[in-house]
């Protein structure tokens, strides 16, 4: 290596790191996770049950954050991964008799392999072709399980019990804690990747594949990596869903799920994990209590309208609004000082 750059002669006076301080967001995240972990212990059964479902949907929302927001890959394969995870959890815990602590690692591995395959199949295609190919995987799998006696055919399977650490996951509190653990792990992985080499490789590939390759980024490798991670966590979400709903049937592959998660990710902001989490909670709550408001027939209409409105007025979603220059300036004035450099 020719070390030909003129190195700075004296230690620079500006903050050479010059990066976002990690401290505050980490503290905020820890507090939020702790609060979320205490929540199930204090709230009633139905609220806890809803919270568990929100966590499952949030996991899926984050997988879209990774695929679409960070990698710029327009995947509609969420249901394929989710559904496969749902069936895998039943097979692994019921048929193989494994405890969830090991079983869910296997479920994640199944999802990772399927994600990897989906990435490999779509290596050469982008945009619409990729969206349709990944969508088609869901249809294929739905058909396979529908015609498989072992997996219960059209009726699916029920009457199974998924154990975790020797306790049944039909206790929604335990379900919440496991879901929260998976979500926290996923958030930590995403946040770390974003700030490091992999995140920049994703960003480069998303913004200009040609430039990415020209700085040495093997775009295909990173696409496969991203699909693998998203696959693992989507499958875990599916497995938790099996435990939550106590029945798994071919509807876990439905496009309805893919579209509602897509709505959550777009409205929350594809590039913003916090935005997606907030909207996942809000929309799932709305959907759940739509009956109380007497609007259950209009849920999909509301989702669709929110997508349209968001794309029209908030292309970066709620999260984009929060990080818009005006808001950042407002927050910056009241908080941070002496972060030299930024004009």
């Amino acid at each position: 290596m020719t070390d030909t750059l003129t190195r700075p002669r004296q230690p620079s006076t500006t903050d050479p790191a010059g990066h976002r301080r990690a401290g505050l967001p980490v503290i905020v995240a820890v507090v939020l996770v702790a609060a979320a972990a205490i929540f199930p212990a204090l709230s009633d059964y139905s609220t806890t049950y809803l919270f568990a479902y929100i966590l499952i949907i949030a996991l899926l929302g984050l997988s879209l954050h990774l695929l679409m927001g960070l990698m710029g890959v327009f995947s509609l394969g969420q249901a394929a991964l989710f559904g496969t995870g749902a069936y895998a959890a039943v097979v692994v815990t019921e048929d193989l008799g494994l405890d969830g602590a090991i079983g869910f690692v296997l479920v994640a591995a199944v999802g990772a392999v399927l994600g990897l395959l989906m990435g490999a199949v779509t290596l050469r295609v982008t945009d619409l072709y990729l969206a349709l190919t990944t969508l088609a995987v869901g249809y294929i799998f739905e058909n396979v399980v529908r015609n498989s006696d072992w997996l219960g055919g059209p009726q699916g399977r029920s009457g199974f019990s998924i154990m975790f650490f020797g306790r049944s996951l039909d206790d929604p509190r335990l379900l919440c804690w496991i879901g929260l653990g998976a979500l926290t792990l996923f958030l930590a992985v995403i946040a770390s990747m974003r700030r490091s080499k992999i995140g920049r490789a994703f960003m480069a590939t998303r913004e200009s594949p040609m430039a990415a390759r020209s700085i040495g980024v093997d775009a295909r490798r990173y696409k496969l990596l991203g699909f693998t991670i998203a696959g693992a966590f989507s499958a875990v979400a599916g497995g938790l869903y099996s435990a939550w709903s106590l029945v798994v049937d071919p509807s876990v592959y439905s496009i309805d799920l893919t579209l509602s998660v897509l709505a959550i990710a777009i409205v929350g902001g594809l590039r913003s994990a916090p935005g997606i989490l907030v909207v996942a909670a809000a929309l799932t709550y709305f959907r759940n209590s739509a009956g109380d408001f007497g609007v259950s027939d209009y849920v999909l209409l509301v989702y669709g309208s929110l997508i349209v409105l968001s794309l029209r007025f908030l292309p970066l979603g709620l999260g984009g609004l929060a990080s818009s220059p005006a808001v950042v300036r407002l927050v910056g004035r009241s908080g941070r000082r002496g972060r030299g450099g930024a004009a």
Partner: peptide, 13 residues
């Protein structure tokens, strides 16, 4: 990361 950022700042300067 910090080391590389320092290098990058040298280039930017």
């Amino acid at each position: 990361e910090r080391r590389h950022r320092t290098d990058v700042h040298a280039i930017l300067r």
